Simulated scan of single mutants.
Amino acid sequence: METYEAYAEGGEHVPNPGHADLVRLVDALNHTGNTFFVVQPDDDDVPWGISVAASRGGFGGYDLGWHDTRTDDRREATAADPTTIATEILDWISQLHLQAARYH
C-alpha cells in the first residue's frame, strides 16, 4: 500500500496521518503563518494530492482541493467541520488505494 504524508505551511510534517492527525492539522490552520496543508504520496512522483486551506471567504471554513493526475480527477469544495474534512480525506485516499489494487 502506498504511504502518504501531510505537510503544513507552518512546518509540521506527519507521515501517514490518521483521522485525529488530520483534524488537528485542520484546526491549526489560520490566516497568518499556517494557511494550508497538503496530503500526498511520500515518493518523488506525486500522482495525487489533497490541499486544505483556511478559506479567504467571509464565512470562514476551509477550501479543499483534490487532484489525481492518473485519472484527471480534479475537484474543489468548501467545508466547515474539521472532523468531516478528515473523514473525506481518508475516504478519498482509500478509494485511490482500491482503484490502484484493481489495476495491479
Rank of each mutant, 00 (worst) to 15 (best):
M1G: 08
E2N: 05
E5P: 04
A6Y: 00
Y7F: 13
A8Q: 13
E9K: 06
G11N: 08
G11F: 10
E12P: 01
E12S: 03
H13R: 15
H13C: 04
V14Y: 00
P15Y: 01
G18V: 12
H19V: 09
H19D: 05
D21M: 02
L22K: 02
V23G: 06
V23L: 07
R24H: 05
L25I: 08
D27I: 03
D27L: 13
L29T: 10
T32F: 06
T35Y: 01
F37N: 00
F37H: 05
V38L: 06
Q40N: 12
P41E: 05
D45E: 12
P47K: 02
G49M: 05
G49R: 02
G49P: 03
I50W: 00
S51N: 07
V52Y: 04
A54N: 07
S55E: 07
G61V: 03
G61N: 09
G61R: 08
D63V: 15
W66I: 12
H67N: 11
D68E: 10
T69H: 07
T69N: 06
D72Q: 13
D72M: 05
D73A: 04
D73I: 01
D73V: 01
E76G: 14
E76M: 11
A77F: 03
A77E: 11
A79P: 03
A80P: 13
D81I: 08
E88D: 15
L90Y: 03
L90P: 03
L90G: 04
W92R: 12
I93N: 00
I93P: 00
I93H: 00
L98Y: 04
L98G: 01
L98K: 15
Q99C: 05
A100W: 02
H104F: 08
